[in-house]
Structures are given as C-alpha cells and as structure tokens.
Amino acid sequence: SSQSQGISSSSTSTMPNSSQSSHSSSGTLSSLETVSTQELYSIPEDQEPEDQEPEEPTPAPWARLWALQDGFANLECVNDNYWFGRDKSCEYCFDEPLLKRTDKYRTYSKKHFRIFREVGPKNSYIAYIEDHSGNGTFVNTELVGKGKRRPLNNNSEIALSLSRNKVFVFFDLTVDDQSVYPKALRDEYIMSKTLGSGACGEVKLAFERKTCKKVAIKIISKRKFAIGSAREADPALNVETEIEILKKLNHPCIIKIKNFFDAEDYYIVLELMEGGELFDKVVGNKRLKEATCKLYFYQMLLAVQYLHENGIIHRDLKPENVLLSSQEEDCLIKITDFGHSKILGETSLMRTLCGTPTYLAPEVLVSVGTAGYNRAVDCWSLGVILFICLSGYPPFSEHRTQVSLKDQITSGKYNFIPEVWAEVSEKALDLVKKLLVVDPKARFTTEEALRHPWLQDEDMKRKFQDLLSEENESTALPQVLAQPSTSRKRPREGEAEGAETTKRPAVCAAVL
C-alpha cells in the first residue's frame, strides 16, 4: 500500500463515540455579560531565545476518518491537505487489492476528492471536503458537486459515486458533537469551532446549510445566566432586550441578528466578523496607526449616533465590543453586545450600574441610586476607546495605585505619557480631550465629534464608502454560481449515467 503517514491498516477498528472529540476555545468574540476587562498594560515583551531549542513535538491529529468498508483504511489527519483517489500521487490511494476487485472500484476517479483545513476566524481551523469526481462525492447523502466544497462537521458520513455507498465517517477532533444542539438549529446550521467564551456562554462559528455562508452563533446558558443575574427581577429580559434591539436596528456599522432560537439555552445567530475584536488588534499591534484609528472611530461614531437617534444607549462600549470585518488594516467595524443597552424612556434617566469599570463615565460612578444619566455615557466610553487606539494603553487603570480607579475617572485625570502622545496629531488629542470631559453637559456629542476637524478627511470617508460598496456587492452575490457537472467518465454501479447527480441539489457548496 502507498498510504501516507497516519493511515492504519485495519478497517475493522472499533469506532469511538463522539464524546472523545476535544474542545477548543479562544478569547471572547462577544459576550452578553460584562466580565473583568482584559488588561492592556500587560503586553508581554519578546522573550530571549533559549540556548537549546526544544524538540519539535509530534503533531496531534486534528481529524480521524473511520473506514466503513473492507479495502479502505482508517486515517489520522495530521497534515493540512489529503487527496483521495486511484492515482498513485494521492496521499490516500485507493490501491488495496481487496478494493480493486470490487465492482465499485471502476466508478472512483483518479482524484476523487480531497479533505483539507484552512485558517478561519480567531486563527481556528475549518475542515472542508472538495469534490473532484465525475460520479460524485456525497456528505450525509447530499451531493457536494464537482469543483465545489463544503465544510465537514463531526460525524459526517462520506459516500463515493452513490449516496448509499458510504466509505468513511469523519471525526473532527477539535469540535463538539452536533447532537448536543437543538434540532431546529441543526436543521438550518452546521455548528463548528468555538470563537470565544464568557461567564454565561460562548460564541460558535457555524455555516448556513442552504448557502454555506459563515455566521456566529452566540449561545447563552439559561442556567448560568439565571445564577449570574439572580438580582434582576427577570434575567430573561436581558436576552430578550438584546434580541428586540438587534432586530430593529439596520446600520452597516451595527451587528445584524439573523436568527434566534429559544431552547434549553438561547441561541442568537449573528453575522460573522472575520477580523475578531478591536481589543485583540490593539494588543497585537501595541497601538494602531492614526489613519486606521480615524477610519475605525468614524464608523463607531456613525453607529452610536444611529443608536442615540433611535433612543438607544449602549452602556457597555469597549474594544471587546467592536468587531472587525476582516484581518486587513482597512476594514469595516461593527458594534455588538447589546445586553446592557437601554431604550430611552421619557425621563432619559437610568440608575442601574452596569458596564465595565474602566470605560464607565464619571456620572455613572457618582450617581448610583441618587440620580440618572443619559446618552453622554456612550460618548465618554468612545473617548476611552479612542485614547486606547491612539496610545496603546488605557487612560484609567486600577494599577495606578496612588489613585483609585473611581477617583481617576470622576476627576477626569487620565494617565498622559508625553513621549507616547508625541507621535499623535494635535487634532486627534483634542478630540480625545473633548470626549473625556467629566461634566456630561459639556462633553462632545456624537454629532459634535463628527464635525471635529480631525474627522474632516475626505480620503478616509471615501475609503469607508468603498468598503461599504464591497460589502454590499459580496452579500448580494449568490453563493453557488454554477451547477454541478453531469458529465460521466465512468458508469455508476447499477444505474444510468447522471441518474442521481442531477436530482440532488449541491447543498452548502461554494464554487472555488
């Protein structure tokens, strides 16, 4: 046999249950609850290399294929790409003598399909299967379609040439079993990697079954959420508030809700932002270029202005709740996480202390139980975000031990490091100062900020419009641009040419 590394010779191994799959997660993409704000000051410096380099560890398999027929071997997927077919160049070659004697062998292509993985959001991997055969590759009886790919989820059954000719079961060793999710959700989405997690739940990458488009699904544990919100009269209202707010909003710089499922837990389906959180971008770069800050901040102002015009105060604006559309420097941003939002009543007064301390406005800290506050709290938070983006460190921090965090904020005395700000323009610093004003009545509004000289930049605004146009074009394009080929190089076993392929839609398939 010419099988590559990772293939075992026996096809009769006992199949494990899916609970053996491991679970991976990374930083929070968007969480309903406010958790302790991640610290920006503690960015690790590059460490000196050791005298002796450690040995390379043996790579762990990321997936496993269990053979369902004699003549096929099990495969431990270690590499990122595997070709399957009769050709000797394939990493998994159909060359077992037992297999060659079967009637089905002649229906398999020289290069029938490939399984591979690509880097997705949060640097996690996504597994795909890609059909290159004349007679078809099927996943859970659905045709992939020649020249098309679809994501592979845990426990997928792979069939060759005929939908009933099941050859492998695919085990993704990095994700959960699909069966743990409600059927209504599974009918519409293929669940994938964990993108982030918080005290009350997690955010998962998923794929729409009909279109193969990526989405983010925010899962909120009702049990954990009820415990964490025990002081509230009705904890469920917080989730329902977020859903109702998101459904009503329609702005290019605000995250869109696509679906909602109320089962044992809450499942909020949101558009996916491939670039992750602004927080991670700031930490990764230490600070952002001023031109990049301007492009992002302009969009934040437009989003918050839209919220305020619609009578909504976000109340928890922070870099973790600003998501980026891509890994590119120039990209769209979207505001997310409306769990603490407040729809303005007639009095415009709110007395609930919520939000993240580092970003809270002075009037929030001094008015607990005594007075109210209004939309100006969001403008203060925007000032803190702009400060961080321009400088790479927070204006107020618990680690300045000589003054408490509350006193720093209520006095408006931010930590100004001259040598850092020497590289920032006077106009940018002036806008920061106009937003970090203790008196909410004297603080800049979103309208005033948008009129500030720093943002009178036609090149930046043109760039934003171009990015918007690109997004609109990409969302308007159909996901499947061509029909699967019906040509046949070899006959199917026991049926006429093209008899099955043309009847089945290529579900969740995307043209390369």
Rank of each mutant, 00 (worst) to 15 (best):
Y359L: 04
G392V: 00
F279G: 03
S487I: 11
G339L: 02
Y414I: 10
L278N: 02
Y306S: 14
Y296W: 12
A476K: 12
V366E: 10
L386Y: 01
C253Y: 04
L450W: 05
V384A: 00
D407Q: 03
T292I: 13
T358Y: 14
I255R: 03
L344S: 04
R490W: 08
C389W: 03
M460E: 09
I409L: 08
C379V: 08
K406M: 09
L382R: 01
W421P: 09
L323C: 15
F297R: 04
D316Y: 05
Y266T: 05
Y373C: 03
H340T: 01
T475R: 08
V283C: 04
V377S: 01
E309V: 13
M460N: 10
M350Q: 05
F279M: 13
L249G: 06
T356I: 00
L278V: 11
P362G: 00
Y414V: 00
P319M: 09
E264K: 14
E328R: 06
T336R: 00
F261S: 08
I343H: 15
E277K: 03
K427Q: 08
V304Q: 02
I255K: 02
A422S: 10
L435P: 10
Y266K: 09
T358S: 14
V507L: 12
D262M: 15
K286G: 10
E277S: 01
E328G: 07
Y296F: 14
E277V: 01
P252S: 09
E398L: 03
E500A: 10
G498N: 14
G345E: 03
W380Y: 15
Q456L: 15
N374M: 03
H251K: 11
C389S: 11
N310P: 03
E271T: 10
E426D: 10
W380I: 00
K406E: 07
N415D: 11
L360T: 03
K294Q: 15
L436E: 00
L323T: 01
L429A: 14
L307V: 12
R488I: 00
L512I: 04
L249Q: 12
A476F: 09
E244W: 04
S367R: 11
P319F: 03
T352M: 02
E274Q: 09
I388T: 13
E244S: 13
S326R: 02
E363K: 02
Q479K: 10
L360R: 05
V420I: 13
L467I: 10
L481F: 04
P319T: 14
P357E: 01
N250V: 12
L405M: 04
G355M: 05
A496F: 12
I385Y: 01
K334D: 08
T292H: 13
G275R: 05
R504L: 11
F260Y: 14
A291H: 12
A510G: 12
P478A: 03
F464G: 01
P319C: 01
E448S: 00
H251F: 01
S474T: 07
P478R: 03
A449R: 06
L307I: 14
L390H: 02
N259E: 09
G284T: 13
S367I: 14
I385T: 04
G494A: 08
P484W: 01
L429S: 13
N250S: 07
V368E: 04
A496C: 10
F279Y: 07
Y373P: 01
L353F: 13
K286V: 09
P394S: 13
A361C: 02
V480A: 08
N374D: 09
P395S: 06
K427G: 15
K433E: 12
V368K: 03
G284V: 09
D407A: 13
C508P: 12
L512M: 13
L317Y: 01
E495W: 03
I245S: 12
R504I: 09
L246D: 01
G383A: 00
L288D: 04
I333N: 00
L307Q: 11
A496H: 00
P252L: 09
E423D: 04
